[in-house]
């Protein structure tokens, strides 16, 4: 999977390329907006990592042009500004996510995977985390090659968590995704499914765990 990195700082670009390489992504690097425009027209990229402060303009202008051309390519905007206003204007201009410098490589990769999955860019709709491999379309979970049977809602919950592995899935988001508008649900419906899912994962020797963030939601991560 090839991504385009637009970042004028050579040192940061090198470090980022290292991170993406390690995660198995091929990276093309553009240092200026003009180069990036040419590369975007020439090649097909799964995602764009875009720095705002470019020598020939604001990265957001590039993003606006991209969206104006009808592209739905996932875009993560990097910024040294990072104030909330900047973040909101970034999301308004069509960014899928927004990351303030500095950031940890784990967070960057988690966010990149999340936007790729949201966009359906991961072909085959298979997501992985630690020793878990989940085929979302067929609702088949493999742990270390062993198949684990899941109910439809357990599967939907797991897909949600694995797509956002390393990031929080708020309880409200989970409720919205799992239950339709017509469903009446008890206040602990999500807890009930979560409990069952955890049991199944534990029994199958899962290398990933679901952390409860009390009052907020859940987060899936590789067991420490």
């Amino acid at each position: 999977m090839r991504i385009l990195l637009v970042e004028d700082d050579a040192a940061l670009a090198a470090a980022l390329t290292g991170v993406f390489d390690k995660a198995g992504f091929a990276v093309d690097h553009a240092q200026a907006r003009e180069d990036a425009e040419l590369m975007l027209r020439a090649g097909h990229y799964a995602a764009l990592i875009l720095d705002r402060g470019l020598p020939d303009g604001d990265g957001l202008e590039l993003l606006q042009d991209l969206r104006a051309r009808g592209s739905t390519m996932p875009v993560i905007v990097l910024t040294a500004r990072g104030t909330l206003d900047a973040r909101i204007s970034g999301l308004d201009k069509g960014a899928d996510d927004y990351l303030a410098k500095p950031f940890s490589p784990d967070e960057l990769m988690a966010r990149l995977r999340a936007v790729l999955r949201r966009n359906g860019s991961f072909q085959g709709r298979e997501v992985a985390c630690a020793n878990l491999c989940f085929d979302i379309d067929n609702q088949v979970l493999h742990i270390d090659g062993q198949t684990v049977a899941l109910s439809q809602r357990e599967g939907a919950l797991l897909a949600l968590l694995m797509r956002r592995a390393g990031l929080v899935v708020t309880k409200r988001l989970a409720e919205d995704q799992l239950f339709g508008a017509g469903d009446t649900l008890g206040s602990n419906a999500i807890e009930v499914y979560m409990h069952r899912l955890r049991q199944k994962l534990d029994q199958a020797g899962s290398g990933a765990e679901i952390v409860t963030v009390r009052g907020v939601g859940y987060l899936m991560r590789a067991r420490q």
Binding site: D9, A11, L12, A14, A15, L16, G18, V19, K22, G53, L78, A80, R81, G82, A100, K101, P102, F103, S104, P105, D106
Partner: peptide, 17 residues
């Protein structure tokens, strides 16, 4: 703050390796 954030991001990524 703005000027230091990019080198700091580089540093953080390098330390992670």
């Amino acid at each position: 703050a703005h000027e230091l954030r990019t080198p700091l991001a580089t540093l953080q990524l390098q330390v992670a390796t």
